[in-house]
């Protein structure tokens, strides 16, 4: 699997090893010396057979991600700055679709929502219980940015929990996203700084 190959490649990046103040220095040092990383990410394991979720507009992730190579974070822009990744605002869709593929039925539907100033009622596919404090931003920072993981390949990181979205039309839940799924990954990535404290996630 592509994702896995990428991540066990020791040259992919490096890792937070200690407390915040120290890390930056260590990182600089290591990068300048082009040394191999001590630890690497172990992706979570587990599968889930998600139900098909009918969405108000059948959004084709495959066309956007695979065919047009649009980065996940172009639309799910909040992922790197918030707990939630966010559904892109309609204005973002219209940024392209004012001119692109305006004759397609799904785009016509979208345009109607936009003109009516209404938001489509998207159905949630990926969710964690409300008593869980999960943040996208910290995961992205640890798994990608701090390791200088190439941002253009970010979908490989997203795929840890969201699966192979580039081959889906509307998203489908393929990972269990339950406590076992989370905690096993945290234990496996302890050296990366994955916390084991209950109150880190339970709120």
């Amino acid at each position: 699997m592509v994702v896995k190959n990428r991540l066990i490649n020791p040259g992919a990046g490096f890792v937070r090893t200690g407390l915040a103040g120290m890390v930056f220095l260590v990182m600089l040092l290591m990068s300048s010396m082009a040394m191999a990383v001590k630890y690497d990410v172990v992706p979570p394991s587990g599968t889930h057979t998600g139900e098909d979720v009918p969405q108000p507009i059948e959004f084709p992730h495959d066309i956007h991600v695979k065919d047009n190579d649009i980065n996940c974070m172009y639309c799910h822009t909040y992922a790197r700055r918030s707990k939630v990744a966010g559904i892109p605002p309609t204005s973002k869709c219209m940024g392209c679709h004012k001119v692109i593929a305006t004759d397609k039925p799904r785009i016509k539907e979208l345009t109607k929502y936009w003109e009516d100033k209404e938001s489509p009622l998207w159905k949630k596919v990926h969710d964690v219980p409300d008593f869980v404090h999960f943040t996208h931003e910290k995961h992205l920072k640890t798994l990608a940015f701090d390791r200088e993981f190439p941002v253009e390949d970010i979908k490989e990181i997203c795929a840890f929990c969201h699966g192979d979205v580039e081959n889906m039309t509307v998203a489908n839940k393929v990972k269990p996203l339950n406590m076992g799924f989370c905690i096993n990954c945290h234990i496996a990535n302890k050296d990366l700084g994955a916390p084991g404290d209950c109150w880190k996630c339970h709120k």
């Binding site: 890390v23 404090h133 109150w199």
Partner: peptide
């Protein structure tokens, strides 16, 4: 107010500071 502690710690973490 652990949720406030958590928010501040997350913010500090994101900014690589204590």
């Amino acid at each position: 107010c652990v949720q406030r502690i958590r928010t501040v710690k997350d913010k500090a973490f994101m900014e690589d500071r204590s």
